[in-house]
Design a protein around this nucleic acid. Sequence first.
DNA 1: TTATCTGCAAACCGTTTGCAAAGTT
DNA 2: AACTTTGCAAACGGTTTGCAGATAA
Lengths: 138, 138
Amino acid sequence: MYSKAMATQTRQTRGQVRVLEVLKQSRQPISAQALFAELRQQDHPLGLATIYRALEALKREGFVQSRLTPQGEALYTIVAEDHQHFMTCLHCGTSTPLDACPFQELEQQWRQSSTFQLYYHTLELFGICLLCQNAPNS
Amino acid sequence: MYSKAMATQTRQTRGQVRVLEVLKQSRQPISAQALFAELRQQDHPLGLATIYRALEALKREGFVQSRLTPQGEALYTIVAEDHQHFMTCLHCGTSTPLDACPFQELEQQWRQSSTFQLYYHTLELFGICLLCQNAPNS
DNA sequence: TTATCTGCAAACCGTTTGCAAAGTT
DNA sequence: AACTTTGCAAACGGTTTGCAGATAA
């Protein structure tokens, strides 16, 4: 599910290339709309539909993963070597990847002890980041 | 966030009462649309808007919690004593609550070692349930 | 030329909101 | 009478789809 290894490199479309470029340079999980704005700013405008289609293809090919904000907006990231979880600041919205999946060892045991055939899991931490804790205003 | 204790009992509206009833008798996390259908079947029809407003109030008062499907549809459950995670079958969609939060002990350590002020977390397991593993068809 | 990709606009779907009618105190 | 809750329909926001024109093999 998260393995880049499964990514069989099919020929890439212009849309996929450009979306992937922005995704690579972006340090934050980014929405389709934000991609749209960014691409337009870089003078490589791309239709929203094209962006969604590119993202879907990149996900299918294992280059990109997505998750949903609590409001239901999809955020996209290039997949890391391993799968990745984020802690997200409820104040400023910044997402920081966790160093490691805290659920890793547990997952192993779990696979053996349970009849439920585990494919993948999601985990996300929400709270207030250091910057916002120290921020004077609001 | 998940504590029923915080639920200050304000007077409940008809909508809230009926929604809560269905929620209590439902063994599965249930969508607003499904609530709508169920209530209609029980001859206590309620407008969708009312259902959403009731759910929002019940969440605010701490009786109900919600999570998002990968497709972005909100599913609602009454809050358990403790907070709860689910494992969800990718084939039949059934959600089963986990006995305990696997992140519990880790969370403690985490609060001390990190500068990120943790409020809450989400965790969900996806895979194939035993029934679907053994199902002959499809 | 044949197949694929793109952009636009319209459709979609879950959710929210404005408003007037119904219900409550 | 003043306030709250409800239902309807319209609006909304993110995403998907149909289709015709552009692009690539």
